[in-house]
């Protein structure tokens, strides 16, 4: 008898999860397809409510509007403080019982220039009054030129299912990438004849090639490495290449010492001034 009841409860829970998902899916599609209409309605109703002097109205539509306004404010705040914009979410319950719930999520969004789509499975279990939430599957797709900077992090967090670590680090990586982009593009705009960015505006390499020194190429390599714990260590290096014909013994020495000299410049002046100095030395 007891077992029959328990089986029925289990069946009901699954049915409820299914209906809920169906309803939410329809709502999601409505919100997606008719976003403009919804905003139009929201606007016109809020105007009407404002005209009435902000008196709280109890009808269903007014309540919905109040609620939506509050949620929108809340979302704006979360987006700002978290530095991550979420554009689309999709959730699916695959298992539901009294002490276990498994949900699959797909989240799309961006963080500065980095766009991502993250799919993950969350398993929540209840054992002896202890609630445990775990990420049991994680799959990350990151788009954009910064992919190089983040690919090692992606494979590492996918393996250890460290969803939170990924987003915590993503924010930091995007900021560092944005700084690099800003710096490189600043120089590129100032000296377009001398400086090129081989991989576009988000390149991790900046090449300095002076017309006065045609046989010499200087590359500034700006890598953004992440440690296992999610600490980010940008690594900026100078690489110098010289045509064989230009290689006198003196030049050879310069070539050998340049990378170390650049590191000292970095420590003393910071990134921008260090690069500035290099550009000056090639005679621009």
């Amino acid at each position: 008898m007891e077992q029959e009841y328990e089986e029925e409860i289990q069946k009901l829970r699954e049915e409820i999860a299914f209906l809920q998902a169906e309803k939410e899916n329809d709502e999601r599609e409505i919100a997606k397809q008719h976003g403009d209409n919804i905003n139009h309605i929201l606007e016109s109703i809020s105007k009407k409510l404002e005209m009435e002097g902000g008196r709280l109205r109890q009808d269903k539509v007014s309540k919905l509007v109040y609620d939506i306004q509050k949620l929108e404010q809340d979302l704006l705040r979360q987006t700002r403080i978290n530095g991550i914009v979420l554009t689309d979410v999709c959730e699916k319950t695959t298992e539901k019982s009294e002490d276990k719930c498994v949900q699959q999520h797909r989240i799309t969004g961006h963080c500065l220039d980095l766009t991502f789509q993250v799919e993950f499975e969350v398993t929540e279990t209840m054992t002896d009054d202890t609630f445990l939430r775990r990420v049991t599957d994680l799959n990350i797709v990151v788009d954009g030129n910064e992919f190089k900077d983040i690919s090692s992090l992606v494979s590492r967090v996918e393996e250890s299912k460290s969803l939170l670590l990924f987003f915590r680090t993503l924010r930091d990586v995007s900021e560092k990438c944005a700084l690099r982009k800003k710096t490189f593009n600043h120089f590129k705009e100032r000296c377009p004849d001398v400086i090129s960015l081989p991989n576009g505006s988000q390149s991790e390499v900046m090449v300095i090639k002076s017309p006065k020194l045609p046989r010499c190429t200087i590359s500034i390599l700006w890598k953004i490495n992440t440690t296992n714990g999610g600490v980010i260590t940008p690594k900026i290096e100078l690489l110098m290449e010289m045509h064989e014909k230009a290689l006198s013994p003196d030049n050879k020495k310069v070539l050998e010492n340049a990378p170390d000299a650049f590191q000292s410049l970095l420590r003393v002046f910071g990134v921008e001034a260090a690069i500035e100095n290099i550009i000056k030395t090639v005679g621009v």
């Binding site: 999601r28 919804i38 919905l64």
Partner: peptide, 14 residues
């Protein structure tokens, strides 16, 4: 339509 919007916002917050 409004309920759909409300659900969407709640999901994003979650």
């Amino acid at each position: 339509l409004l309920t759909a919007k409300q659900t969407e916002l709640k999901k994003l917050l979650k």
